[in-house]
Design a protein around this nucleic acid. Structure first.
Lengths: 106, 106
DNA sequence: TGCATATATGGTAGTTTGACCAAATATAAA
DNA sequence: TTTATATTTGGTCAAACTACCATATATGCA
């Protein structure tokens, strides 16, 4: 693997890593339904505001979301909406895992 | 968010997290081309064998891959092949990010 | 059986992450 | 301009991650 390929795979892994935290994945799923301000997201997350803000920063740095300040509030939205298209497949993995457990019990 | 929803999002995030490491993502991409034994994967990774083995264990525990021992070797393959279907979109994010940088330079 | 090969596991050290608190910044309203 | 609200930033600390080394296990062959 050369340097270019390595940089590419690192960049891609970084995006998946950004989505690989429950709070951040939940945020992304919320944003799939349209933009939200930080306060709206915060309503349903049991964590410090600063924690929420940092999670959003990570999503932003990964390029998953973009933000826009309007008045006192900051609105976030998905930068490339297709980013959640693969969730059905992620769920298929969960299904397959569950099936494995069931099989083990037989 | 209730307990069930929380458990679901955690399970999904865990899968993304497993793929959110360059070495593991690379492995998954290799396996998209068909099963490989550990030694074949190791050929192209500059890391200790034990490290490689542990990465594969993480993918296995996440349910992304399954393994099968045949003779002296252990073969790994994707458990649910669609898991890499979204890479084009991940790449679209990278494209969008690159575009943002270009725009900033204008 | 004894040895070499393939892979996994246990232990350890350095690095990164994630949560909270406190403080800073920005904006709108009084 | 003072005040309240919305969000971000900096600091700290415990927990989790990752890499390496050494060691253990399993299998096929001599």
């Amino acid at each position: 693997m050369n340097d270019k390929e390595k940089a590419l795979i690192e960049a891609k892994a970084n995006i998946l890593k950004a989505l690989g935290h429950p709070t951040r994945l939940w945020m992304a799923e919320q944003l799939a339904g349209g933009e939200r301000c930080v306060c709206e997201l915060a309503e349903n997350i049991d964590a410090d505001f600063s924690t929420i803000s940092k999670h959003l920063t990570i999503l932003k740095q990964a390029g998953v979301v973009i933000d826009e300040k309007r008045g006192k509030q900051v609105y976030y939205k998905l930068k490339v909406p297709c980013i959640l298209n693969f969730m059905p497949c992620v769920e298929a993995v969960l299904q397959a895992n569950a099936q494995t457990h069931i099989d083990l019990l037989k």
